[in-house]
Design a protein around this nucleic acid. Sequence first.
RNA 1: GCGGAAAUAGCUCAGCUGGUAGAGCAUCAGUUUCCCAAACUGAAGGCCGCGGGUUCGAAUCCCGUUUUCCGCUCCA
Length: 493
Amino acid sequence: MSKSTDELFKNVISHAKEYGFVFPSSEIYDGLSAVYDYGQNGVELKNNLKTYWWKAMVQMHENIVGLDSAIFMHPTIWKASGHVDGFSDPMIDNKDSQKRYRADQLLEDKIARYDKDGKTDKAEQLQIEMDNALKAENLPRLRELIIEHEIADPVSGTRNWTEVRQFNLMFSTQMGAVADDADLIYLRPETAQGIFVNYLNVQKSGRMKIPFGIAQIGKAFRNEVIARQFIIRMREFEQMEMQYFVRPGTQKEWFNKWKETRLKWHLALGTEPEKYRYHEHTKLAHYADAAYDIEFDFPFGFKEVEGIHSRTDFDLSQHQKFSTKKMQYFDPEVDPETGKPFGNYIPYVIETSIGLDRMFLLTMINAFEEEDLSTEEKQDSRTVLRLHPCLAPVKAAIFPLIKKDGLPEKAREIMDRLKVDFNLQYEEKDAIGKRYRRQDAIGTPFCITVDHQTLEDDTVTIRYRDTMMQERVNSAELQKIIGDKVSWRNLLA
RNA sequence: GCGGAAAUAGCUCAGCUGGUAGAGCAUCAGUUUCCCAAACUGAAGGCCGCGGGUUCGAAUCCCGUUUUCCGCUCCA
C-alpha cells in the first residue's frame, strides 16, 4: 500500500467517525472487536444503498420478489447446508513455521506412521485416546497427545505448538429459557438459507414460474478468526442477496446474465470502470459449479464486494434430504425437443450476494475528496463527499443568509414545504461559506440560501456541491429541481 | 493465531532524561451581516485505552490486558 492510498483510507475512516457515518461499537467500553455502528449520516447512506438495490432487483423485475426471513433458523438447516461439519475442526498452529494444521489430522498421520513402523500397540492406543478426546471435545488433551507423541511440524521440524482451538465460524446461542432443555441454535452465517427453505412457500403463494428470484436484505454473523480493515470484515454484517431459480441446464446462461447485470448496477453510480474487476474462483466451494466475484480497488487492493455464484441444486437437494420434504418444482412448459412438459425437477440456483457494508465503504472511498481551492492570495481547501444525489444522506440544506430581518422565518417556511419529500437540514450558525463547507463534508448536493431578495420576489440561490456554482431560482421550482436530481430514475431508468 | 506498530479533547497531533495536560481545527453562547473554511469576545470539553507494578511522585519506566492499523495466516 502506498503512502498516499494508506493516507486516503485513514482519512476516510476519521471522516466517517467525525461526521457521524460510522462509529466503533461500544466505544466507551473500549470497543468490541470488528463490530461497528452506523451514525446519523451513515444510516441514511446505508438505507439509500438498500433502496437502490431493492428497487433495481425487486421493483424492476416482475419475476423477483422480496423476503425477510428470521435470523434464527432450525439448527438442522446448518447441517444440511454444510456449515456445521464444514467448519468445526480442532486447529493448531506451529509458532515457528506459522502454519496451521488440523489437530486430528496430525495425530492420524502419526498413527499411520506407528502402523508402518510396526508399532501397532502404540497406534491403537493413540487412536483410542484421540477418539475419546475428540468425542469429549477435550482440546487441551489433543494438544497433550501431540506433545506426548513428539509430533513435529513437517515444515519447520519444531514442536513449538499453540493451544488447540475449535474453529467454527458460526455464533451459537441457546433457545429456551432453561439452558438444560435448550437447543443449540446458530445466528445465520448467510442469509441465503432463509431463501432456500422458503422457496416453495414463495413460489406457491406468489404463483411464481421459473425462472424467478427471491431477494433479501439482512444481517448475518460470522465469528471470524481475525477481522480487520475497518468495515471490510465484520462479525456482524449485512448482506443483500438474490437467489434466482432456473431450469437445470440453463444455469450458465443465467449466470452470465447476472454477472453482467450486477456489474452494471455498480457502474451506474458513476464509478470509473477501472475500479472494478471480475475475479473467477478456480477453487470452487462445495455447492458451486461456477463463481465470480466483483472486486473493487480499495486503497489496500482489490477486494470482493459481491459474489455471483452458480450454486447448482446443492442447497435445495440437501434440504430435501434433511427435511424429507419434496423441494421439486413442476414445470408445465413444454420442452420443444420432447413435446412434453419439463415436469418435476429441483431448480438450479444462481446467487448474487453483495456485502452492504463493503458497498458502503467503497461508496465513501469513491466519494471522498480533499480538494485544493487555493488561489494566489489565499490557501484554501475543502473536504467533499461526491456522493450520487440519490445516495446522499441529506438532500438539501436551507440557510438564511443572516439570522435576522425575517430571513430565518422565510427559510423555515421553505423548509416546511420541502421536508415531506426530502431529508433536509436547516442551519443558521456561522458564516455562509462555512455552512456550505460543512454540507460538502457530508455530501449534501444542494444548499439553498434565503437572502433579502427572497423577501421581495421569492427567489433563492441554489448552490451545487460539485461545482460550487450558484443559481437564482424561484422557490416554487425547488421541489422539481431537487426532485429531478435525487430521483431513482437517474439510476434505474 | 504469529510478528511489528500505535492508543493523550470530537478530529489531527505536541508533551525532552519521571514533577500533577497543551496547540490547531471542530463544538457551544454572544458580537459581526459579510454568498464559499480558519474575523472578534467568552465558554465547555481529558480517570493521557484499562488494570497492576516500580517510585516521595508515572501520560512518561516495567508487566499484563483491550482495541486499532500493517505483514503473514485464515476466509467453509
